[in-house]
Amino acid sequence: MSINTPQQIADITIEAGVKKSHLPTLSVMVLGFLAGAFIALGFLLDIHVSTMIPTPWASLGNLLGAAVFPIGLILVILAGGELLTGNMMSLPTAMFAKRITLGAVARNWLLVTFANLLGALFVAWFFGHVLGLTEGVFLKKTLAIATAKVNADFSQAFISGIGCNWLVCLAVWLSYASKDVAGKILAMWFPIMAFVAIGFQHVVANMFIIPAAIFADALSWTQFIENFAAVFLGNAVGGAIFVGLAYYVSYSNVLQSSLSNVSVTAAASSETQKM
Results as ranks from 00 to 15, higher is better:
residue 75 L to H: 03
residue 80 G to H: 08
residue 6 P to F: 01
residue 41 L to D: 12
residue 142 T to M: 02
residue 74 I to E: 08
residue 13 T to M: 13
residue 32 G to V: 05
residue 239 G to I: 05
residue 248 Y to A: 14
residue 161 G to Q: 07
residue 149 K to N: 07
residue 125 W to P: 12
residue 165 N to W: 05
residue 49 V to Q: 04
residue 46 D to G: 00
residue 259 L to I: 01
residue 125 W to A: 15
residue 254 V to T: 14
residue 213 A to V: 12
residue 237 V to G: 08
residue 179 K to C: 03
residue 261 N to M: 09
residue 222 T to Y: 04
residue 133 L to Q: 09
residue 98 K to W: 09
residue 129 H to R: 15
residue 33 F to W: 10
residue 254 V to S: 14
residue 8 Q to Y: 00
residue 94 A to G: 10
residue 263 S to A: 15
residue 126 F to D: 11
residue 36 G to E: 08
residue 169 C to T: 10
residue 228 F to E: 03
residue 70 P to R: 13
residue 114 F to H: 01
residue 253 N to H: 14
residue 81 G to D: 04
residue 197 A to P: 09
residue 207 M to G: 10
residue 178 S to L: 04
residue 255 L to G: 12
residue 147 T to R: 08
residue 202 H to E: 10
residue 31 L to R: 06
residue 121 L to V: 12
residue 186 L to Y: 02
residue 141 K to H: 06
residue 205 A to H: 02
residue 31 L to I: 00
residue 228 F to A: 08
residue 155 S to W: 05
residue 33 F to C: 11
residue 126 F to C: 10
residue 115 A to W: 01
residue 192 I to M: 15
residue 262 V to E: 15
residue 42 G to M: 06
residue 207 M to W: 03
residue 134 T to M: 14
residue 59 S to F: 07
residue 89 M to L: 13
residue 149 K to Q: 08
residue 43 F to T: 11
residue 177 A to T: 03
residue 93 T to E: 15
residue 163 G to W: 00
residue 214 I to Y: 01
residue 67 A to W: 00
residue 149 K to R: 08
residue 249 V to T: 07
residue 265 T to R: 06
residue 168 V to K: 04
residue 38 F to A: 12
residue 143 L to P: 03
residue 1 M to L: 13
residue 184 K to Y: 02
residue 32 G to C: 08
residue 96 F to R: 09
residue 110 L to I: 07
residue 170 L to R: 02
residue 250 S to H: 07
residue 134 T to A: 11
residue 171 A to L: 08
residue 165 N to K: 00
residue 193 M to N: 04
residue 45 L to P: 01
residue 21 S to I: 01
residue 36 G to N: 06
residue 96 F to M: 15
residue 249 V to M: 15
residue 268 A to P: 00
residue 41 L to M: 15
residue 174 L to D: 10
residue 242 F to W: 06
residue 23 L to F: 07
residue 163 G to D: 05
residue 171 A to C: 06
residue 199 G to D: 09
residue 102 L to E: 09
residue 47 I to F: 00
residue 204 V to D: 14
residue 211 P to R: 06
residue 41 L to H: 02
residue 32 G to N: 05
residue 208 F to L: 14
residue 262 V to S: 12
residue 85 T to E: 11
residue 134 T to Y: 03
residue 107 R to V: 04
